[in-house]
Write a protein that binds this DNA or RNA. Structure first.
Lengths: 130, 130, 130, 130
DNA sequence: GTGGTCTAGACCACA
DNA sequence: GTGGTCTAGACCACA
């Protein structure tokens, strides 16, 4: 059973947190192709947020090819297809990588530590798949 | 002499870019403890942005212990205090690492590619120190 | 000056109409790279619809790389870049072409007429660019 | 024997797919005036969908003059009446053509490619007549 | 002034 | 029951 948690008041919008956590669930294999995700209303009720906020998150995941919606039935995990051009994928990677690395360095981690942590986390994410 | 560049086009707010670049300059050693950073007005003029935007960025950097203000003299790079406990640093690292890795994976990059890109980017960031 | 019109009550959602018309304005050269589009509030007021509806349309155009938003400044026409993979572009073309052709045939136009009308309309769209 | 196929995955509602495919079968000559179409129940059973969904599709086709219902006998392809004036047909064509062309252009296809794809697709649609 | 997020709540489309 | 669209309106972030 999918467990999501969001915090309010912080800098990260609720809908962004939902997106990130669902992406992670897909990437880590906690969710597989074809799996249903909670309905907009059910998740909104569980997280105590407005259904529109969940709908917004789900809509973005659909646009990015992570989820598919079936009207009247619900949202489901889509087969991963690379919808973006190589250039765009690269652009989007940099867009998320740079702030991450800047923050990691600012936190006092050195390059070697960062590489190690990234490798370790990637292992955990992909191993748990099988 | 410190060189900052901001782009007014993208999604990242100007004050955020200023913060990120100064943090990175400190992390990479381009700026050392005690170094002066440009005055609010000078930097605003140079970057052609509103002084309020720079003031806001500097205020956040002071709040985070990256800069110190000396009244009447200007802003200086603060002695690197590790404000956070090891556990807290770790927590904050995960907080930014997980969404980054999840997005990278759903973009279709595999673990090896992600490790390579991270290493490459880190090299570029830290080489520019010398 | 950009002129948009929407009808309510029909099958086509308002935000979809806004998207279509802005796409057309870009495709036909009525709008050029860097041009500002009306602010969310201004357009909402002009069309007598809710600002959220306009915001939704603009957000989709940003996601598709047609517009760029500059926080605090407004929305602007983005440089056209092909953000989608060849496969995805093809998929999206079919997604809009098939319903169009089916409707055209149902209206009683024969293939030759449809080809002619498409060619004529394309000419008008791209000639008006210069 | 009429062959319909519906996919329950995508964004297009099932009843819409049924409508589009029947319209296309009529337009392409696969179905001729007076031909019977499958009964609501038979088609629902064949496609594994709710009979209400088929009933809804047939109702719209009757409303548009594509089908006729004969009480107790079933649904039949109606005599092709051109319900719309030439002007109205033209207006309706533009209504669907413009968004299609605008999207195709903003997807990065050039006029020549669009003309080619349209011609190719039309060929395939009408060849299947024989 | 601009855009961004979120809530509360209505009403429709679809299965 | 499910998702989709839209309104009214609040409050924040940014320039």
């Amino acid at each position: 059973m999918l467990r999501l948690r969001v915090t309010t008041g912080g800098a990260v919008p609720i809908y962004r947190q939902v997106i990130d956590q669902l992406r992670q669930s897909c990437a880590s294999g906690k969710l597989s192709v074809g799996d249903a995700v909670p309905s907009v209303r059910a998740l909104a009720k569980e997280l105590l947020v407005n259904p529109n906020t969940i709908a917004k998150a789900y809509a973005e995941l659909v646009r990015d090819g992570v989820l598919e919606s079936q009207r009247g039935r619900g949202y489901f995990v889509a087969a991963q297809r690379n919808i973006f051009s190589a250039k765009e994928r690269r652009r989007r990677l940099d867009l998320v990588m740079d702030p991450f690395l800047a923050e990691a360095l600012t936190l006092g981690f050195d390059p070697q530590q960062i590489r190690d942590e990234v490798a370790k986390r990637l292992d955990r994410m992909t191993k748990s798949k099988s």
